[in-house]
Nucleic acid binder design. Sequence first.
DNA 1: GTGAAAGCGCTAACAC
DNA 2: GTGTTAGCGCTTTCAC
Lengths: 334, 334
Amino acid sequence: MATIYDVARRAEVSPATVSRVVNGRANVDAGLAERVRRAMSDLNYRPNAVARNLRRSRTSFWAVIISDIGNPFFTAMFRAVQDVAQPAGYSVLLCNTDNDPEREEQYVDATMAEQIAGVIISPTAASPHVQRLVDARVPVVVIDRLLSDTLVDTVLVDNDLGAEDATRHLIRSGYRRIACITGPQGLFTADRRLAGYRRALESEGIKYDPDLVRFADFRQEGGHQAMESLLSDPVRPDAVFVANNMMTIGAVGRIFDHGLRVPQDVGVVGFDDVPWSLLRPALSTVAQPTYELGRHAADLLAARMAEPDREPTVLTLPTELKVRQSSIPRQRQD
Amino acid sequence: MATIYDVARRAEVSPATVSRVVNGRANVDAGLAERVRRAMSDLNYRPNAVARNLRRSRTSFWAVIISDIGNPFFTAMFRAVQDVAQPAGYSVLLCNTDNDPEREEQYVDATMAEQIAGVIISPTAASPHVQRLVDARVPVVVIDRLLSDTLVDTVLVDNDLGAEDATRHLIRSGYRRIACITGPQGLFTADRRLAGYRRALESEGIKYDPDLVRFADFRQEGGHQAMESLLSDPVRPDAVFVANNMMTIGAVGRIFDHGLRVPQDVGVVGFDDVPWSLLRPALSTVAQPTYELGRHAADLLAARMAEPDREPTVLTLPTELKVRQSSIPRQRQD
DNA sequence: GTGAAAGCGCTAACAC
DNA sequence: GTGTTAGCGCTTTCAC
């Protein structure tokens, strides 16, 4: 592999000049620059990014650390990050923790060791790792979680309001015994969405009943089991608010398995869209602006890199209730 | 940030000894090693991976280059790769090309510049980039495509047979006017699946009719449009074989939009499962062993890294036809 | 078993 | 505008 010295020798200039040409610095004589470019192409020279990274003591990578690569929420967000990063000359590393704090730690360690230029992370429940990144002055943006003990750029949606809208919509559609399947207790989004559900009930004069609440794992299988548990109750709910997309899939499947109809027997509103229009009945959901979330996170990251000492920003984006078939009982459909 | 020199000074040994301890080399006196470990922890020392990379002239990254991060086929495969890579001490970079050859080139360049240790790639149609990687002696495994002009480790499924099975199943279920929506002409999987479709027709004595074939883009929207085009024909097909999962979603949605029923009016078999069990009717598909594909690709990559001059292997895994509701017309269901 | 020292390929002072 | 040179932090001969 040709190095910058080989090119310099061939073009009869110094390595410094070659470096300047490679990096597009203006202050190089046009003739020299041309000679350098010829030499580079003659030798099929490719700069060694690792050497550059060492010298500059940071890389041209961003890392996105997420908990579930199978969830379209994260992949859509990732795509947005990539769309911002690539034109800016950064490649994006996707790290999938499967909600395992140990894996998260491993990735955060790797991130620091590899001198990653910036990190966008959706941390697992109690995450001291973000603090470590902040302490090491690695630019970080937290997405989808609000960390109470760490001052850091953050992008969220209004989980409370979204869940409240969804639940109120179910109430106003005539459902009365409304269950809630939320995520692991202590996980920010799970707690906020449960809180929104509760607030809607209480503001509409329906008593909050903890027996109608299930805590699952935000995955399809969890939604499946939680629904099973709800349906095996002597008095089954007539509607359910499910706090994420994957669990909604699982929950609705279970409703069908019991021979029940959606929305006639059980009304359903999920949280976060699934990008697939095929589902029947079409699911009512609290849509999150996933792409926007990613784009804002990427923009915040870029801003922090440009200005490391700026005040941390917390951005809360609105959700949008999309009413489709799964929450409109037959008698009200027309 | 503490360096290896700081640790050496504090432990009163040489940097070489610290390096040996960090890398777990055996030939270090136990007492010294202990002293070094203490110093490391005192100073909160973290090895600088970039410097190590430069010195070793390769990184501890693998890159997976795919065409669509929104397709569960690729994310499942990625997960498998990650599961092999991580215990082996590698982090995995996910590169999403959106089927854009330019983006692919950019990623291949970055891969080489960053001295990525190994690459798993599902190349776009005509890909000279893989040859470049091979020439540069970067360990590469190609997945989901057979490159005719490049000798390289490859993991495939038997596309021909899978498509043939699917189509024959439709024929035997009583469908006669069977359409095919495949991917972009020239793309390996698209061509092979079309060939399998054709072979089934001909072996069952049905004339192959090019008017029943549509070439789309392997994405939901493409399936949507292709189905629209098929349904606007004066004589509409009574079944369709769709050559990938995303297009199947789009196609079935369009069938519904036309007020037609699946499978009574139009039978459907897709290629590659979708992880959502919720779809109604449940889709008959040619299931690919996605996780296995990824695992084998990762294993081949590891083998190539260990033994750069081994003969390239081409692995072809079987598919499995999963007959569900979408291809069993009512009169035959019982 | 341990240390001294060279150098991976590049960039950025600094000198001219 | 261009060249000289000193490292970035680590690993790895090689000598002892």
